[in-house]
Amino acid sequence: MRQLRINLNKCDAGRKTCHHECEASCAEKVFKLSDPAMAALHIREMADGSGQAVLCDQCGDCIVVCPAEALKRNKLGVVMIDKKLCVGCYMCIGFCDKEIFERNPAWLEPYKCTSCGICVKACPHAALEIVEVPEPPTRII
């Protein structure tokens, strides 16, 4: 499956030299939103100066949780939301222990990273990459 991965040693993690190009490009190009805070990934600087990334690893826990079967893997193994089926219950948001789901108050359906790779191209530090990894086994949560 396609997975977005970050190398925090390369990532500037929100310090002065970084303009959060990954978040801005995600918000603007993928979701047509001007606010980078609405992106489907987040890079944060921790109190100790280290970086932290909030991004979807396509683990698929949310697939089992969704009552409407609106979350499914596509042929690339990426977990996608079918907006037609989604009933806006937000169980996926509450049950994601990585807290990667986003919600725009103007939309009923939540959204998430789809491993599209736009952020990879935007990152000036080459900290992000799309990798191919095996699908993890289904977890019962």
């Binding site: 409407a68 009933v87 806006g88 937000y90 948001i93 509450g94 049950f95 009923l108």
Partner: peptide, 23 residues
């Protein structure tokens, strides 16, 4: 069924309360 069929007065409060409870 969609999540807004009940046309509630304040959807944001319901959404936030729901997500808090799911967690």
């Amino acid at each position: 069924v969609k999540g807004d069929l009940n046309h509630v007065a304040d959807f944001e409060t319901i959404a936030k309360t729901g997500v808090k409870y799911h967690k």
